[in-house]
């Protein structure tokens, strides 16, 4: 038996003529395996794990400057469009570990937060949304990525929008990762609400952290 140089596909030697059909069967099966492996790699690229969350279904607040509001998705009536599950459940955005990511890789996560003052607006008061990607370790919580958006409001009543995004690595211990999402404001003149569907999150896996062998 001989083999091709790169893919190691079998082909008969001079003395294998009587077993040609067996060689063709083996060749067919190995070609199929190679082609299916290629398709799996292509699928990772064209149909990556992706999710879009929209919620809450009931407004959050109004809350004062003293509040630190966590905008996590569990239990707050978020809709999610997704092509993956995490341990059989729909993915969530939560500081609770193990609810968001289904596999290791490079992930892209982003947000758009809408906030509304219930009354007067304090000039230059801030609206701040922070996201911390964290991993639980034996020594405590390790910060993987911290990002967010800080805007100053004008002394006019209006709806504010904040957006942001980041790319980070998730290793194979996906069950140890969580996303902490915190909104605060300094609008002393009135309280602030997050309206219905005022939180928009999205996540997609954009690549592997492994070295992919290219034949």
């Amino acid at each position: 038996m001989n083999f091709t140089d790169v893919l190691r596909l079998p082909c008969p030697s001079d003395g294998d003529y009587a077993a040609l059909s067996v060689y063709m069967q083996r060749l067919a099966e190995e070609i199929e395996a190679k082609i299916l492996a290629q398709r799996a790699l292509i699928s990772d690229e064209t149909n990556p794990p992706t999710a879009i969350w929209i919620g809450p279904n009931i407004a959050i607040g109004p809350f004062s400057t003293a509040s630190i509001v966590e905008l996590s998705t569990p239990g707050q009536g978020f809709g999610v469009f997704t092509n993956y599950t995490v341990n059989g459940n729909l993915p969530q955005v939560s500081a609770t570990k193990g609810l968001t990511f289904n596999e290791a890789g490079v992930w892209h996560f982003g947000f758009c937060i809408t906030s509304v003052a219930s009354g007067a607006v304090t000039n230059d008061s801030n609206r701040l949304f922070r996201v911390q990607i964290a991993k639980g370790t034996s020594g405590g919580t390790q910060q993987i990525e911290l990002f967010g958006r800080h805007i100053n409001a004008e002394a006019t009543i209006a709806t504010d929008f904040l957006t942001g995004q980041a790319v980070f690595n998730v290793d194979t211990e996906t069950a140890k990762y969580g996303i902490n999402t915190v909104f605060t404001h300094t609008n002393a003149a009135s309280n602030v609400s997050i309206p219905v569907n005022g939180v928009y999150y999205w996540a997609t896996r954009i690549g592997s952290t492994d070295s992919i062998e290219v034949l």
Partner: peptide, 16 residues
């Protein structure tokens, strides 16, 4: 034939 892609091949004893 192969199980998924259906690549046909002759069985032992068949004429190639």
């Amino acid at each position: 034939q192969t199980p998924i892609l259906g690549i046909r091949y002759p069985l032992l004893g068949e004429t190639i």
